[in-house]
Amino acid sequence: MNLRDSYDDRFRGVRKGRRMRFAFGALIFGLALLGVASAQAPRVVSVGGSLTEIVYALGAEKQLVAVDTTSLYPDAALKLPKVGYARQLSAEGVLALRPTLILATSEAGPPNALEQLRATGVKIESTSAEHSFDELRNKVKVVAAAVGMPDAGRALETKLVADIAEASRWIAAQPSRPRVLFILSHSGAAQVSGDGTAADAMIKLAGGVNAVSGFKGYKPLTAEAAIGANPDVILTTTQGVAAIGGIDKLLSQPGLGLTAAGKARRVLDMEALYLLGFGPRLPQAVRELAKRMRDPQTAVATTARTSPSPAP
């Protein structure tokens, strides 16, 4: 509402300015300067959960005017206007927010909408959607430069590098390499994560072994293949556990209960964007995953957690 009011105010200002042009030439010059200044106040639309998190981590959230539907963290981001699903942007809808900058991953689209946005002079900073720590560093660099906060960017990067190094040292000192099966969804056969997925990258970063490999992306797993994969730990998202109605329901899926993880009830759940988003909480998430998947106590799930814990 407030946003819309301010647009109307601006238009009214412009129209009034035009009417006065002949009488108050000098005054118009001042108004025009003001107009230029307000047009240059950065208005950022962030299309990607990890990019939105980086904007907040840099302290640049004042520039943010809208986010996409994957921007679920922090809570403040949920209150911003939503431009919809990243791959189905509406050119006019986004333009209506009068953005000066759009932060996007290579997943943003459709191409026609991006072309139309570029054509009207909006700057689009695009980053890769790759699941790696290096890509996270690159995103921080790109976002920090784009919002004009390179110093905050460098500071964040330094902190991330130190944090991931610390997590890696801890992981390297662990003797165990647990076999982890990540389950994305539970409609019918369990959808599990193969090579190239964010879950696969997280399991490897946390020093585990992906219990299923040899195929790309997420695939349904038959009951027999689940037993064959025989994971030590089952990893899933908090949202996934909630959708199926609890850990017991999950383990009652054909096959899962007969795996080593199922017998020992070693089921881990983490919030989806925290676990798979590859945003600035990555070192924290890697560390938490690495610890919980090796700790027989915490890994035995009893209740579904609703939000990620703060840094351990």
Partner: peptide, 22 residues
């Protein structure tokens, strides 16, 4: 054989859009 994103794109395609207009 589609990935999640491809599935989602496919679903959107079957629902139609005039967004490609230029």
């Amino acid at each position: 054989i589609a990935t999640d994103t491809q599935l989602r794109l496919l679903t959107f395609w079957t629902l139609g859009s005039l967004g490609s207009a230029n």
